[in-house]
Design a binder for these strands. Structure first.
Lengths: 206, 206
DNA sequence: CCTGAATTTGAGGGCTGCCTCAACTTTCTG
DNA sequence: CAGAAAGTTGAGGCAGCCCTCAAATTCAGG
């Protein structure tokens, strides 16, 4: 698995790059269901060429997202390196959702990967289990509710992904508020301070 | 506005009823984006007839959902009638989401209405404000976090609606778990008991 | 420069869904 | 029961998106 692929002709390589760039852009703007013809158009290449290089939508995903999702590994690592398990957990979720909120394609991709991970069939199995370790650690430290499970992480991602989808254009920080609610709950707490400070993001119309 | 509408011919009235029944069914199964031609097919009526009676998708919604959404007013009422403001709040959310989880169309419709209500343009303004009163009451009683706002209710509905969408076929009670997390938060609590008893619904594979 | 192989092209066929309208059928009224 | 009004029909036009393939083009090596 090194140089098993024959070198592409110059123009082909150029087109492939243009396609990948366009796809990244289009998926980012429109999500994973974006029309492939839009990608070809934006790449300045015919639809036939697109299918030459990427016979299916999934080949696009495979070319684009693994790297970008792997970037989340660093978020996980740094969360696990945090001395405070709860703070690590918070920073993992913030980091994850911040990435999702920057790109509709990534938002969809994360949902997809986590769903697959739960079915025990994902490529991302690895990343998911690493992420769960963040939660297990916080649990052991008595900071995370004891009944938290892998399903809950997936549920959390589903929930927040939709908040991101709904607000990405008009109030793209709303997910922070949602995360605060998830972390602290709706119930009033004895202590006046809950999470340091995550007030409402600028969602107000007036 | 009483009998301003000329009486429909017998066959027309029959078809209208068939269309409404079919639409209710189809929207329920497929959500508000379901193809209108499927509705005509299931009603045993031509697509032309469908457009005769309901020139736009919205006229369908207007004919179907107001009543069903109004059924939620009873949920709200009974929540407000609850002696315990927090328990009322819980029962409102449970009631709302239970309704959403039973019908994809209603799930979509609730999301739509709440979004509009926030834009101050919804028909449902009324119901939304009534719902908010549940939260205000719980706040006054010191049971709900003091910074809860209307935006948070909408966010909550967005979040849970997605969990419902993702799980409605395979584990339709998952939203309960999501609600528990919202109510109590992820953080471990000093008291051992949080919410009476909402363990994981039967989502586990094994 | 020439040639063969690699690559690109884009018209076109297929599908689904939206919507219209001229021709046809049914109901109602006198 | 006839005629007019009301209602129904479904083919067909439009649009978006998917995907294919024969013909045309471009590249790379001799």
């Amino acid at each position: 698995m090194g140089a098993g692929t024959k070198p592409l002709r110059a123009d082909a390589a150029r087109n492939r790059d243009k396609l990948l760039a366009a796809a990244t852009q289009v998926f980012g703007e429109r999500g994973l269901d974006a029309p492939l013809e839009e990608i070809a158009r934006r790449a300045g290449v015919s639809i036939g060429t697109l299918y030459n290089h990427f016979p299916t939508r999934d080949t696009f995903f495979a070319a684009i997202f693994p790297d970008r999702l792997a970037a989340l590994d660093r978020v996980i690592e740094s969360a696990l390196a945090d001395a405070d398990p709860w703070h690590g957990l918070e920073s993992f979720l913030s980091g994850l959702f911040a990435v999702q909120a920057r790109d509709r394609g990534l938002n969809d991709a994360v949902v997809r990967e986590y769903r697959l991970a739960l079915d025990a069939s994902g490529v991302c199995q690895n990343g998911f289990e690493q992420a769960m370790e963040i939660f297990e650690r916080a649990k052991r430290a008595g900071r995370l509710r004891a009944d938290f499970e892998a399903e809950d992480l997936v549920t959390l991602v589903w929930a927040v992904s939709q908040v991101i989808r709904e607000t990405i254009d008009t109030a793209p920080d709303t997910w922070r508020r949602c995360l605060t609610l998830f972390l602290d709950g709706l119930r009033a707490r004895p202590e006046p301070e809950t999470t340091p400070a995550t007030p409402h993001p600028g969602a107000g119309p007036g």
